Simulated assay, not measured.
Amino acid sequence: MTSTAGPAARVRGDLAALLADVAEAYVLGDVVTWSVLTTGYEDCNVDLSTTRARVVAKVFAAGRDPAIAARTAGLITAAQAAGVRHPRLHRDACDRLVRSCLGHQVLVMDFVPGRTLYDLGRAPDPGELAGVVEQAARIHTVDAHPEFVFDPWAVTNLAPLAGQLRDVLDAEQSRLVGQVIEETADVNRDALPTALIHADLTKGNVLLGDDGTVNVLDFAVANRFPRVQELAVIAANLAHGSPDSLPARAETIGDLYSVVAEVPLAVVERAALRVFARAAAAMELLGALAEWHRHGNRGAETEYLIGLGTAGLRDCAGGVS
């Protein structure tokens, strides 16, 4: 049996008992083995093998809005109809996608053989990056208007979060983040075309299948925002580790997107993308610092994101001063 430290703490009671309940509810047979996937800060994702299948059970954390699971399932279904590759969702014995098991909302999906870019510890190669951008463009065609859900890592929260963390920012961080806040304040968001965006296309949410396919995971924070906000997250997080600087990555991603999107990026979007990419790097830094100092999440993922955000900000500032 695998240790239940980390994300398993977000589950009330006995995780093994909950997984047994999940297996019964979704007619998966008996539990054989399971392991908790250690990335992420919100829910508990479990690699679950039973006598009938190998699946991933997404257990929404205790205390989350009970409507979030149904919202997520609906967005995944709509995205799949638009050609987005996401693991197939399972239905329970009553033909429902979402099930309440021992007080937790649960989604069950196919296990896709492969690894996330975070697990691989690298940036996508050019072909993989093009595949991710193509998936983003498909998401942006989805005609869905879900109820807004707060995303603490969204660039719209930059100034408030920076204010809350002013006491933990060092001199360089404070200077770099302050510059980004000034830049984003000058962006006319009303002039930017909006769409349904995934909002979290990061290394941990893009799985490269063993067959070479790009699979998108986790629509829990999808919202309607300027579409360049999506591309900024791809540039700042997903493409981190490539030889190019963050501004260069943003330009490349803008080019790739304009080739596959129904409507290419406008000049005003190109300008906003450069600013939002820097803001996305700042949010990676600030979000990780919040996890480190406020929530005690001081593991490798948090440390990695602090470094990722700092590197992106330094790229945009032309190096360390």
Rank of each mutant, 00 (worst) to 15 (best):
M1S: 14
T2L: 12
A5V: 10
A8W: 12
D14M: 04
A17F: 02
Y26F: 15
V27R: 15
V27M: 09
G29C: 07
W34N: 00
T39L: 13
G40F: 10
Y41N: 03
E42N: 14
D43W: 05
R52P: 00
A53P: 02
A53C: 09
R54I: 04
V55G: 04
V55C: 06
A62D: 13
G63S: 05
G63A: 07
D65M: 09
P66W: 12
A73Q: 11
I76W: 03
I76L: 12
T77F: 01
A78Y: 06
A78G: 09
G83Y: 08
R85Q: 13
P87T: 08
L89W: 09
L89S: 09
A93C: 12
C94E: 15
D95S: 14
L97G: 08
C101R: 13
L102N: 14
H104Y: 07
H104W: 04
Q105A: 14
V106F: 06
V106I: 13
V108G: 08
M109N: 01
V112D: 00
R115Q: 14
L117R: 00
A123E: 10
D125E: 14
D125K: 09
P126H: 12
A130M: 10
G131N: 04
V132D: 01
E134Y: 01
A136P: 00
D143W: 00
T156P: 00
N157I: 00
D167K: 06
D170W: 09
Q173F: 04
R175A: 14
V177C: 07
G178I: 09
I181A: 11
E183K: 12
E183H: 10
V187Y: 08
N188P: 04
D190N: 14
L192D: 10
L192M: 13
T194F: 03
T194Q: 12
A195G: 03
A199E: 04
L201C: 05
T202G: 01
K203N: 05
G204I: 06
V206F: 08
D210L: 07
N215D: 10
N215F: 06
V216L: 15
D218K: 05
A220D: 10
N223S: 05
R224G: 02
F225S: 02
Q229A: 13
E230N: 07
A235L: 05
N237L: 07
L238T: 01
L238H: 08
A239N: 08
H240K: 10
H240I: 02
G241P: 05
G241T: 11
S242H: 07
P243E: 14
P247F: 14
R249P: 00
E251A: 15
T252D: 03
G254I: 11
G254W: 09
L256W: 08
S258R: 09
V259T: 13
A261N: 10
A261D: 05
E262H: 12
V263G: 02
A266P: 02
V267M: 09
A272H: 03
L273K: 06
A277L: 00
R278V: 00
A280L: 07
A281S: 15
M283G: 01
L285D: 06
L289T: 09
H293V: 02
H295C: 03
N297V: 09
Y304P: 00
Y304A: 13
I306H: 03
I306C: 03
L308M: 12
G309A: 07
D315I: 04
V320E: 15
